[in-house]
Structure formats: structure tokens, C-alpha cells
Design a protein around this nucleic acid. Sequence first.
RNA 1: GCCCGGAUGGCGAAAUCGGCAGACGCAGCGGACUUAAAAUCCGCAGGGAGCAAUCCCAUGGGGGUUCAAGUCCCCCUCCGGGCACCA
Length: 623
Amino acid sequence: MVPKDEYRREPRFAPVQLNLTETLSEPQPDQQKISVFTTRIDTIYGVTSLLLAPEHPLVVQFSADNPELQKKVRELLEEQKIAREKGDLAALAKEGVATGRFATNPFTQEAVPIWVANYVLMDYGTGAVMSVPAHDERDFEFAKKFGLELKIVVLPRHANESEKGNAEPLLPYTHEDSLLINSGEFTGLGCQEAQQKMAAFAEQHGFGKPSTTYRLKDWGVSRQRYWGTPIPIIYCDKDGLVPVPEDQLPVLLPDSIAITQEGGSPLSRVPEFAQVTCPKCGGMARRETDTMDTFVDSSWYFYRYADPKNSRAPFDTDTVAYWFPIDQYIGGVEHAILHLIYSRFWTKMMRDLGLVKNDEPVEHLFTQGMVIKNGAKMSKSKGNVVSPDDMIAQYGADATRMYALFAAPPDRDLDWQEDGVAGISRFLSRVYRFAMQAMPRVIAGRSQSLPSTLNPLERQLMRKMHQTLRRLTQEFDGRWHFNTCIAAIMELVNELTADEKAIASGGVADSVLYAITRTLVLMLQAFAPYLAAELWSQMGEDIPLLHAPWPAYDEALAAEHVLEVPVQINGKLRAVVTVSAGSDSEVLRATADQDPKIQAALAGKEIVKVVLLPGKLVNFVVR
RNA sequence: GCCCGGAUGGCGAAAUCGGCAGACGCAGCGGACUUAAAAUCCGCAGGGAGCAAUCCCAUGGGGGUUCAAGUCCCCCUCCGGGCACCA
């Protein structure tokens, strides 16, 4: 599948150990070490403080005999917790407190103050961060607020020569296509190179080494909701967490439930659901009343489709192995992450458990556009969904379906509007009238073989038919731009109805009329299946329309014999000339030379160059 | 903030590999048929200048590459979607 970064592989330089000093004096050999985690070791000469997460173990030690600091740290932790629960950590105002301790930067041997900050997370990296205000957004904000020092150690690579050395970049300057300054022996290196060399230096001196870290996407699956899959776990005071025995699965949601405005899980207020006996000891126990995120269901439900009647298990491994992976997934861009990631994760988990044999749920992904209504995506949660029911009632399912396909290619967003469906409806009526008019001769033509030579009208119509068929065949196999398929069918029908009188008066053999009408119906079935099925049955075909094979187009019959070639002068269209297909450059040049418009336009000009593309284009470059 | 899409006539769009910008349709205008209307059929239709032939301008904006750019490169604006103190 296409989205492939559910975890990101990032080169990291971690951990770098900064020695802790009690004072600004020389570092002592027996002092403690704090591991920090960084992706920008190249900025380490710009470190002006060291930040710890409120939960960092050393914070406890630092604040042991300092109640004031303890209180402040508790506040910082609380702020962080609330922000994380709300999911808007980014909006959290940066707060922090100095511990009064100092750490020594192993690169510079400088001592920097140690702070506790509410935006440093204990569960990422090491819970300790080197703060480089000049080259990190967050540190910049923090340092400005608390008056901490800024040290510029990276300059834009493309700064003018004259500015070099004194150009102050707009702070914080975080780009990595840059050069180091004020960085000791590393000054003058590019960021990337510096990262390699400084990591090697750290490793050599035993205070750090590069590593690769994988960042997994968080997915908290439990929800305090009624709608969701029950989590089959029972809490017993005696036995702890007890899984619901397999013969009691699946746990079903209760039917009688009051959805109130109260907070908390609605299921916890349904005693007959929540109160159970422990499967182990038979004593009073409590059922888990959170349900699972609906993403859990959407992560695997499609496996059930391969084995829908299985009453023993969700699905049988071998039955599923026959069908999976799915050949083609079609979904909206808004699914490009989340659902798609989770379903891949779920498949890999089931693979590891031996439940499925495929590594990926899906082979190919087609990302369809969203339906937009009044500038926003149409979605149930936004309540701006427009039902096609009215349109179906007025124009029928065929016209509604075809209109939706005609409005835009499927990979593009579609701003839903209803003008235009009438045109499709008119088109389908026109097809029906034409076909029914021709029907007696179409039926007669069924049993006749095609004429050995086609007359000009027959040839023209057959050419158009094969061109249309070629277009559809290629689209179905490739881009899926059904809007242009429909346009192509319209062009074919336009040509047929334009020649309707000539066709009616016998200008086209019955067998040719049959061949064209039959192909038209086959092409139409993808877009207007009901009309196509009706016409097919009128034609008295032996096999059902759905079983009829897709017809093959004939490249020779589709080929144009006369080509119109644009003639340009300095790239601007000045004439169009007609040549027979297969004409070479000389013929093309001669034809263009003879065109009166071209002769007039070239008069008195010097021809510098002539671009000749046989069958495609002539361009005179003149002075 | 970061990542991914997108922007072309009054509207939906087409141009698939750098080669006639606007196919096909909607809405509109003119005409035929009709007592009249509906339906249907024919024609016109990006903007500007001109009686006309014809010419100029035009694919969100600005630069560039090229004989030739909606299409390729650089910068920017706006709209949509997703993610987001992950150091």
C-alpha cells in the first residue's frame, strides 16, 4: 500500500551524556551523568541549558529538600497531563523552573543551568533535552520567556560572502542545509557532516553514540462509549484481570441502555452488563465497560467478508488465505492515515499470531477525492451530507450514477452540485431513442456477417466506435478517469445521431449497425447498467449482459487515415494542414510550405530552424 | 508549524509522453418545429480590437529552461485534507 510511514525511521544521535556539576567549578570524575536525546547534535555548541521532564528521576533527587521546587514541579506535571489528555500539547504555554543545579556540556566543558520544563516528555527519548534556543522553536520560546542565553552556532549556507561570519539568521534558525560556526573543531562543517563527525567524536570519548529510533504512532483503543466492541475482560478483586472464557465470546452490548448527558462510560451504569461473576473464582466481579475504538473494527472487518458464515470463529485462516491480500482498495484521502495504518498494523499482528498468512491487507491503493459541500468535506460528523435519493427519484439511478462519474475524475475532490444531471438524463434518452429506432435492423443484422469492404460512412462510424472502445479499455486498465470515458461515448453517440438520417435510409449495413450498437451497449453498461440491460434484452442476445466479455478494439479500424497537423511560427499556431497518415517529414514540410497563410506569414522572414514532427507538428523558427 | 492534495471560460471539466488550451457537458443566447408551451432538432459562445481577413491577451501570481510550457525547474499566494511541543 502507498502510505508507508506508520513508523518513521529517523537517524538519531542518542544519548549524549552531560555531566552534572554541583557548582560552576571544574567537573569531578565521580559526578552523575544525565543522558539527553537529540537529533541535532550539530547544534550542541549552542546549548545554553538542560531541560528535564517533570517526572525525570533526578528531579525527585534535586527537589528532595526543596518543598517549593517540589510544588512547582507538580504544577508543571499537572499542566502537561491536562494538555496531553486534551490532545493539544502544542497549545500548552511553556513553563519551567530552575533547579539550581548545573550540567557540563561534554563538547565545550561549559556549565549550563538545569531546568524542569512542562513541555519535555518523560516517555520520549530519555526525558532530558539539551536546549538550543537559537536553533529550536520550542527552546527559543522557552528561553525568551525566562531570559535564557542564546548562542548562534549555525548559519545559512547561502549567505552572501560579504555577510559571511556576521550575518544573523532569523531566529530560531532550524534549517539543516547550513554551516556551523562557533563550534570548536567542527566550525565550518555542513550540518549533515557535522552530525556524523560529532557523533563519532561522542562515541570515541564514551559519552554518546548514534542510533536509529522508530517512532510508533499512539493508538489508545479504549473509549467511554456505548457504540464500540466490548473489551472481553473481567476485573475480580481476588483474581485481578480475567479474560472472558472463549466459549462466552463474543461479549454482546446490552440493548437496554440510557444515553445520558453524564460523563463516563454509559455501560458502567447498566448493572446487568457490568456486574458479573468471576470466571475463575465465581465471586462478584466487574466487567470492563469501556469499548474499543471503532478503528478496531475497521481494521479487520473485511476478513470476515471472505468467510461470512463461519460460526466458530471470525474467519478461517485457509479460507482467508485464498482471497487475501485484497487486490484493490479504494478510499478517501482522509483515510490515508489512521484507518489504513491501523488495518495494516492489525494484519501484521494477526500474521504474527498465525491467523492470516498475508503480510499486508491490500495490494493496491486508489485514493479517491472527497465530496465537498460548501467548501468542506461531506461527512456524517459534519452533518452536511447530501443524499442522492431525490436525484434518483427524479432522474433514475442510471442518470444519477453516470452524473456522479461524469462530474470529475475519481481521484479529485468533487464539489457536489446538482446542475448537470438533467444533461445526462437527456443523453440517456437520446441513446434509448436512437437504439430503439435502429432496433429492427440491429436484430436483423445479428445474423449477418460484416460486409467485406466498408463504405465511407460505415468506415467512419466503425472508426469512431473502435476509437471509443480503445479509450475506455485503456482507462479501465489505467487511470480510471470515467468522466472522459463518458465524454467519449457522448462523442460516439453524437456522431451516430448526426448521421441518423443517412443510417436510416440504408447508408449503413444492418450488420454494421448491429456491431456498433452492441458495442455501444457493452460500453454503456459500466455507467448506465439498467439502460444497457434493457437494450441488451431488446437485442435478444443469448447470454446475459453481465456475462458478455469486454469487446476487443481493432487498432487498424481505429486508425485515422487523414491527419490535421498544426503549423506554428515561433511557437504560435498559424495554420492547420491536412496530410495523409504516415506522411514523412518532407511531405509535411512541403504541405506546410504550400499553405497560403504560412507563405504570407513567412514572407520576408529568415527561417532559422524548422521543427518537423511527422503526424504531429510543424514549427518554423524565424527572425 | 510540518506532510499531502488542489487552483484552467459564467459553472463541472478536457488536454494520458513538453506540441492546435477549453474536448464532453451544464447554464446562457439565437433559430426551426408548435395555435402556444414542453420535448426535440440546428446554430453561437474564453476576453479584447476590427466591417472583415486577421491580430493581441489568457491555464492562481512572479521568475526560469525550451523552437514550443496548463504540463518541467525555482519562489510566492490562496483553498482543502492529515498530523502536531516526539527534542
